[in-house]
């Protein structure tokens, strides 16, 4: 069975890729398996300048999930182009560059900077990071604002743009339709849900940022529902994410309407997870009566 699927800018050998922020730029995981096995890689968010991120603690475990508030720590887009992308260029691996910013201009500048490299195949426009004081999630919760930032990044980008949607929007379908009409080539969904946990001994929020983004299996049903709704309302492909741990989870995302999936938090529990899912997916697809990936996509709607 072929697991291949073609999406704007991305010829995927299989529909499995690590999610942005959980996999850095791949180096650490390359000690566990050959990165060329992956469908693609979504690299850690790039901003215009270097960012140091939030104070620690930055993560906290919650039941079947975790909260994180890293705060977009990264060396800045130019350093990423110079020091990280050449490493990934050594693999047979489509690269999706996640971009973030505090202002629309910053998003534009990061997209513009990425024009100087041919080592990325798509941009993931991160308008949904809940962990920074300025920018991030505010761009992703109001359809008009999401439209504007998408339109302006599309003008700068030399590769297809996938917009990463926030589950913290009041109406995610409206945001999805807005970014589609602004020219988005695809959607990735969902980013984390804002959450909090309190340290009983210290009587204050455990994370230094107080609020963090909830990820992991705990948010999977939210992701499935949102992808199901958005799939019906748009004509651009969706890369789905949110708590994937098993090949059954992957199939569920495909059925809801995702054309490919990203795996995030599960990499922390099992660094081999992406490879294991890729190896086991054909068996699961067959078991549920599918001859190809494409047959499974959106099959819960028919």
């Amino acid at each position: 069975m072929t697991l291949a699927i073609n999406l704007p800018g991305l010829q995927l050998k299989n529909p499995i890729m690590p999610a942005s922020g959980c996999f850095s730029f791949g180096r650490e995981y390359s000690h566990f398996y050959d990165l060329s096995e992956l469908g693609a890689i979504m690299i850690k968010a790039a901003t215009e300048e270097k960012r140091l991120g939030n104070s620690t603690p930055r993560v906290a475990e919650t039941k079947s999930g975790m909260l994180n508030a890293i705060g977009l720590q990264n060396p800045g887009v130019l350093k990423i182009i110079e020091n990280e992308l050449p490493f990934l260029g050594g693999y047979d691996l489509p690269v999706i560059a996640n971009i973030a910013g505090s202002t629309v201009e910053e998003y534009e500048n990061v997209a513009k900077a990425l024009r100087q490299t041919d080592l990325i195949h798509a941009i993931e426009l991160n308008i949904s990071c809940p962990n920074v004081k300025e920018g991030g999630v505010q761009f992703g919760t109001v359809p008009e604002v999401a439209y504007e930032v998408t339109r302006r990044v599309k003008e700068q980008a030399s590769v297809p743009v996938y917009v990463k949607l926030s589950p913290n929007a009041a109406d995610i379908v409206a945001v999805a339709q807005a970014v589609e009409s602004a020219g988005a080539d695809g959607l990735t969904m969902i980013n984390t849900l804002t959450g909090m946990t309190i340290d009983l001994h210290k009587r204050r929020p455990l994370l230094s940022n107080k609020v963090g983004g909830l990820s992991g299996p705990a948010i999977k049903p939210v992701a499935i529902r949102m992808i199901y709704d958005v799939y019906k309302a748009v004509n651009i492909p969706i890369i789905g994410m949110g708590g994937i741990m098993t090949t059954e989870d992957v199939l569920e995302f495909l059925m809801a309407g995702a054309s490919a999936v990203a795996v995030g938090t599960a990499n922390f529990q099992n660094p081999m997870i992406c490879k294991e899912l890729i190896d086991d997916l054909p068996t699961t697809l067959k078991q549920y009566g599918f001859e190809s990936i494409e047959e499974a996509i959106g099959s819960a709607h028919r």
Binding site: C22, T56, P57, R58, A60, N68, I70, P271
Partner: peptide, 24 residues
């Protein structure tokens, strides 16, 4: 000691600033 995410250097959860505070 710090709360960790991936444990292998990929997630930037368990950072500590360098003395000059210019990096971590």
């Amino acid at each position: 000691e710090e709360r960790m995410g991936c444990g292998i250097g990929a997630c930037y959860a368990c950072v500590v600033p360098t003395k000059d505070e210019k990096g971590s």
